[in-house]
């Protein structure tokens, strides 16, 4: 009885959403014999989702202003139930994500998976690595502590050393000549909106290309 009801409900949704086709196209795909090194792409995606979730949770208490940023994070760490866990995962997840994305890139390089027909997948992958580093750079400032403040001062000054346009880039990054409230709020905006949206978009294309061309096979001696 229940089985039949469930079947009917599923059939109704399937007719309208095409669940079965979706399942066949995305999940029930044939693949070359797997290798543990090939899991790093998914691990990057997992970390992206985890960073997204914990990041959203952090914004529940975090306040991006020089007066409150530091205190609000102290509060998350000591005043909020499991705040240490959420921030701890986000903090270490950032480091791990950079590492995993980089090793993933090395794997693709070593197995030469970037060659025909997957050139575009690689290109987008390099973009993903860059945006991930951008996330690390913008997120580093948000706690507004000594380390954050001075590292970002130096980091943005590096951008300022570019000939001719350096001064302009520096002011655009900092929202002024020095680090100030505008810097914090634009880094915050970049960290929670601009870069994640770019990241999500690029990941979408990256995944589409993987499904389109299939996962690359491990090269054999004659390859």
């Amino acid at each position: 009885m229940w089985k039949k009801l469930w079947k009917n409900i599923f059939a109704w949704f399937d007719e309208r959403l095409g669940l079965n086709d979706l399942y066949k196209a995305t999940l029930d795909r044939p693949e070359p014999k797997g290798n543990w090194w090939n899991t790093l792409g998914s691990a990057s995606l997992f970390l992206f989702v985890l960073q997204g979730l914990t990041g959203i949770f952090l914004t529940v208490y975090y306040t991006p202003s020089p007066d409150h940023a530091y205190d609000s994070i102290q509060y998350i760490m000591t005043g909020v139930e499991f705040g240490w866990l959420i921030r701890g995962i986000h903090h270490w997840g950032a480091s791990l994500m950079v590492m995993v994305v980089f090793i993933h890139m090395l794997r693709v390089f070593v197995t030469a998976s970037y060659k025909y027909p997957r050139e575009l997948t690689w290109l987008i992958g390099v973009g993903l690595l860059l945006v991930t580093l951008g996330m690390g750079f913008t997120g580093y400032l948000l706690p507004w502590n000594q380390k954050a403040f001075w590292a970002t001062t130096v980091g943005t000054a590096i951008a300022g050393s570019v000939p001719w346009v350096g001064e302009f880039i520096l002011k655009a990054l900092r929202g002024g000549t020095d680090l100030n409230a505008l810097t914090l709020s634009r880094f915050f905006s970049a960290h929670i909106w601009i870069l994640p949206v770019m990241l999500a978009g690029l990941i979408g294309v990256h995944l589409f290309l993987i499904i389109k061309h299939g996962e690359s096979a491990f090269p054999e001696k004659e390859d």
Binding site: L27, E31, K33, G34, W36, L47, L50, G88, I89, L96
Partner: peptide, 25 residues
């Protein structure tokens, strides 16, 4: 000669992700 994405690959992916998660916690 290969396998299916679901569940063979996803299983491996999740095991690795789970390991990463444990490390993070």
């Amino acid at each position: 000669k290969g396998e299916r994405f679901w569940p063979d690959s996803i299983y491996k992916d999740l095991v690795v992700s789970f390991g990463i998660f444990i490390v993070l916690v």
